[in-house]
Amino acid sequence: MQQLIDEIFLSVFDDTPLQSQLKEDQAQLPLAEFTAHGDRLAFTTDSFVVTPLIFPCGDIGKLAVCGTVNDLAVGGAKPLYLSAGFIIEEGIEFKLLESIVSSMAKTAQQAGVRIVTGDTKVVERGMADQLFINTSGVGVIPSRIQVKVSAAQPGDKILVNGFIGDHGAAVMLARENLGLYSDLRSDCAPLSLLIHPLLAQCPQIRCMRDATRGGLGVVLNEIAKASQVTIELFEPELPIRPQTQAICEILGLEPLFLANEGMAAFVVPAQQVEQALQLMQSHPLGQQAKVVGQVTETSQGMVYLSTAYGGKRMLETPYGVQLPRIC
């Protein structure tokens, strides 16, 4: 076990300022770094299971870092530190584990966060589907940022920063033997790189949610219910790749309920929409940003889709999931 920790983890998570702490039972973090960025601590945790462990444009390590960083970022926080816990099945190849850990380190560096503490457990063969990862993250929210899922108001616009459903469709194709070929890639990315400069210029953004579990459809239903408003989506404006749309039509899936790992929904006051849209589109993670809907009225919390043919249909949270858990 000590050899595993030294050779696989400590050799990669070798952040110089905290290197002396990596063999302690806890990370000791300077309070000055928190107070320099804001007045509220943001803290989140998530566990990651995915098959296959490596998929187009990502892997479970990148997914774990991005998922936790994004959960902090959409709350208005600047992500600073992560923990990483690994449940490793006996028999996993060292090269595969090394690749995943290196991917985590690279993604953390890209996102500007440090992996400062963690844990490793090895379980018997057949007990863990090769590898499970849990990550927790802490960040700081500036006092001027008040992003809440319950803050949407009539007149606000709904923006997304990229294509819908790419991650769910890409992982499904990589997992299942469907006889289909596509160059579709996961959108897995650390959204803090987009959100931090966006909030610096548009601090009045009311709400942000990364559209992971359940996709955009579920996220908007959560916002509508928490804010007690009705949200209207414009079907012709939804940015869906032809490949994703085709896969969904073949398999009878709804792209609005497919997972995303680099796309979020933004509720923006009408007067700031143009500025927010321009800032998003000037960033690599927001080049496909579009206004896809609006908040129409106060209600019990509903979402409906205005179709390309002039009709309307309710977009309700599904009772089950389209696919086994992939994020």
Rank of each mutant, 00 (worst) to 15 (best):
R213D: 07
A289H: 02
R313E: 15
M314S: 14
Y319C: 11
I92A: 01
R114A: 12
L193T: 07
L191H: 00
Y81K: 02
A246K: 10
D129N: 14
Q275E: 10
P52F: 00
R175Q: 08
E249K: 12
A308G: 05
R241N: 05
F94K: 15
V160C: 13
Y304D: 03
R125D: 06
M208N: 00
A105V: 06
V101G: 01
V303W: 02
S136G: 12
D210N: 07
M1G: 06
S227E: 02
S102Y: 11
T107Q: 15
S103R: 07
E24M: 10
I133Y: 01
Q228L: 13
L178K: 10
H196Q: 11
P255H: 06
V267M: 02
A226C: 09
L97N: 00
E316A: 15
A152E: 01
E316M: 14
H37S: 03
Q278D: 10
P190G: 05
G168E: 03
I92F: 03
D6F: 06
K225A: 13
G320A: 15
E89W: 00
T307K: 11
A108D: 02
M172D: 04
E274N: 12
T307H: 07
F234T: 05
K225R: 15
F163S: 14
I231A: 06
S143W: 08
H196W: 04
G155S: 15
D14F: 04
P318W: 13
Q300R: 10
V123I: 11
Y181T: 12
Q109H: 15
L315S: 03
P142C: 06
E93T: 00
L173I: 06
C66A: 15
F234N: 11
D15I: 05
V229S: 05
A105H: 14
E222Y: 09
H167C: 05
C57N: 15
